[in-house]
Simulated assay, not measured.
Amino acid sequence: MGKLTTLKGKLKDEGSQMKLNMVHLCSSENDKIIDKAIFKATTHTSHDPPSDKYVTFLQSTVDTSYGPQAVTAIVQRLCLTKDVRVAAQCLILLHKMVKSENGYREEEDSIRNLIYNQGGSNLNLNDLNEDSSSFAKELSPWVQWYKLYLDCFLFNAGVLGVTPNIKENSEEKRVEAERVASYTTDCIFEQTDFLVDVFEYISGRPETPTDKPNRIVIEMIELVVKDYFSVMRLIKIRLEELNERPDRPDEFVSVLVRLENCMEGLSEFSWRNKNSNEDFWSLVLELKDG
């Protein structure tokens, strides 16, 4: 059955390549290069996440005029596919594309907005075909969850005006703290409320495969863990600022309770950055019980 599944996958890839060749009869050279990279990064037969070679190339288009074109092509492949592997690989590509955005970009056609507007609620992944392989069946709930998670992540990027991608860097945190200090209390609380949504989505992820490592799922988790610590830093800055304000909203405690409810589901990642993790959760509990 595994050989039959692989054969079907190869035939689908060949069919996709033939369609691509037809489209490229009237395409520019840049179109061909971008489409080829996307095709090679998202195949029906691979059990691996997109190759770094193609990811790096596609990320290099983000700050160029070809960025929107690359994103549109990835979203289109995601919308058209019925294969759970291809869908997973496309979502990973989109996640990596948006995380490669630099700085506080205000353009309406920024990569994150383009992905959110073209995908988001318009994207239906309920009709994905699951072949008989345990790999595909294991991957399916992760794809469904990952799509919803990315919707939430991108929505937060829109609320913040920047992709949640802050590093453990004192200068980046200082700049962010200065920005937050200039906001109204209601604005800070609203942002915090939405950022907690990201924690809740991460906490509610499917069970991690234990029998045999699923490399695509592992890649999803790695990307989400990086988001987790970035969002943690953003929430911490906002909690500290809210704690200094005399006019904290009545709902402040309820947000802290929501955070506390995420602790257990996020504890799996604590070893990645133990000090930051302990500092954050100590602050949450202190504010909640204070």
Rank of each mutant, 00 (worst) to 15 (best):
C90A: 10
K36V: 08
D186N: 13
K274W: 02
R174G: 01
N122H: 14
S276E: 01
N273R: 05
W271K: 10
Y201D: 03
T185S: 14
R248A: 14
I34E: 01
D35T: 05
R245L: 08
K288E: 09
E106K: 13
A88Q: 02
E260G: 09
E264P: 02
F194Y: 13
T184A: 11
D131Y: 03
E176D: 14
A157V: 06
F194V: 07
G2K: 13
G290W: 07
S254D: 15
L128R: 00
T210F: 09
D63W: 00
I92F: 06
E107C: 11
L148A: 12
S65R: 15
I235D: 02
N275I: 07
K12P: 04
S132G: 12
D35W: 06
V217Y: 04
L78K: 05
Y116R: 15
R174Y: 03
P249Y: 01
D52P: 06
S182T: 10
P164S: 06
T184R: 10
T208D: 06
M232G: 01
Y228L: 15
G290A: 05
K36T: 14
S27L: 09
D289G: 03
Q89W: 04
D151K: 08
V180G: 06
E222P: 01
S46A: 15
V257T: 12
E264F: 11
F269W: 09
I74T: 00
N275Y: 10
A177W: 01
S28A: 08
H24T: 06
D127C: 09
I202W: 03
R205Q: 12
Q89D: 05
L128V: 01
G15M: 11
N124D: 15
K274T: 10
F229H: 03
Y149E: 04
L94K: 05
S276A: 04
V159P: 00
L128H: 00
L239D: 01
L25Q: 15
R245T: 07
N113H: 13
V23W: 14
Y104V: 09
I38Q: 05
D109S: 14
Y54Q: 14
P209A: 07
S132L: 12
D227Y: 02
T64Y: 05
Y228A: 11
K173S: 05
S267H: 12
N113E: 09
G158V: 06
F153G: 03
L285G: 07
F135I: 02
M97D: 02
E286R: 15
L154G: 04
Q144I: 10
G2E: 11
K147N: 11
A181K: 15
F199I: 08
G204H: 13
E172R: 07
N21A: 14
E251T: 12
R112W: 06
F269H: 09
L125K: 04
T56G: 08
I33C: 02
C90F: 07
I74L: 03
A41N: 06
H47E: 12
D279G: 00
K173G: 00
K236Q: 15
H47Y: 13
T72I: 08
L239I: 07
L4Q: 12
G120H: 01
P206L: 09
I115M: 10
P164Q: 05
K173H: 08
I111D: 04
F199H: 11
N165Y: 00
V253C: 12
V257C: 09
V175G: 01
E108W: 01
G119R: 08
S282A: 11
S100V: 06
C90P: 02
N21T: 10
K53Q: 09
G15A: 13
V175H: 07
N30V: 12
S230W: 00
W145N: 01
